[in-house]
Computed example of a mutant assay.
Amino acid sequence: MQLTHRLSGALLGLVVAAGATTATTATAPAAHAAPPVAHVAPVQAAPAHAADMPAVLAPAAHVIDATTGRVHFSKEADLRRPVASLTKMMTAYVVLQRAEPTDKVEVTADDVRYASAGGAAVAHLRAGDTLTVENLLYALMLPSGADAAHALARAYGPGVEEFVAEMNATARRLGMDDTVYVNADGMPYGGGGHSTARDQVRLAQAVLENPTLEKVTSARYHMVPATSEHGSYSWRNTNRLLGTPGALGVKTGFTRAAGYTLAFAADRGESRLVGVLLGESDSSRRFQTAGALLDWAAAAVQQ
């Protein structure tokens, strides 16, 4: 939320102490460009409820009320950074533009080999198993399976390169002008791509508007009984916010380049709060910070 007057010295000191450095506007992305060097953000006005704002140590963050459009918190929201497995939100979103949840995809040896060769998180899919798109989305979003990402991108590009091109085209359509994808899983191949906290919040909103994806991202566990087409599977969500009031997911991520990332959301009262943290150095702290931001923003809605 931006006021038209400049902060007073006292309020500015309060905002800096709370870690609430606000966003800047980045220049348009070049294809496969690496994130630029961090820059100094211009000072913007703090929310009216800044006095009890949680400390946010992550380098970039953005939290909004998706119901009203109100920005509750913004810190370097337009700074381009790698986002790791938050990339899989776009993979899931694009798949459901092209497929039905009941469609089926056969897992190939290439899907399994691709994921295991890069050291990515996997859903332990088995070559030769045929799974529904919905079950592959659970494999993609809960354990963050790069094998599921490869299988879906290969099937619905058709071909991974074509699928990634559609990811970038979809980003433009969603207004994510500071986002470039180079693969379907967020691993640092080919430079790893980049996005911003603001763009990823916009994507998380779009993901949660799809009933299938809202159901998937909100699931703490998912089990797939064995059938004649596939073996049994059991996946646990890596998002430790699930189980807290109103939590909806959305996605976790980590690479050395990106640090720990988190897209999070919760329905609180009449509001849907959506946020993103990028570049956190501590895995547990990202969940603690997100929970504190959700509580703080929800309290502000009641004011």
Rank of each mutant, 00 (worst) to 15 (best):
Q303W: 04
H230T: 07
R240N: 11
K104C: 03
T68P: 07
W296N: 06
A26F: 03
G159Q: 14
L14D: 14
T196P: 05
A120F: 12
F254D: 00
S271F: 01
D111Y: 06
E100T: 15
A266V: 09
T252W: 04
V16R: 14
A120N: 08
S271P: 00
A28C: 08
Y189P: 00
V94A: 04
V15P: 00
E76A: 11
M89Y: 01
A38C: 01
A155C: 05
A17P: 00
A17K: 12
A17Q: 15
R268G: 02
D52I: 02
E161L: 09
L278D: 02
T289K: 04
T108L: 10
A292E: 13
T24C: 09
A84S: 12
D177R: 10
R202D: 04
A30M: 10
A61E: 07
V276F: 04
N210W: 01
A99P: 05
H49R: 10
V207H: 05
G19Q: 06
E134K: 14
A31F: 11
L57P: 00
Q200M: 15
A247W: 00
L14K: 11
T238F: 01
I64M: 05
E280H: 11
E134C: 01
R256M: 09
V43C: 01
A263E: 02
I64C: 06
N239I: 05
A155H: 13
V122L: 08
L12E: 10
H124E: 14
A109Y: 04
T87G: 03
Y93L: 15
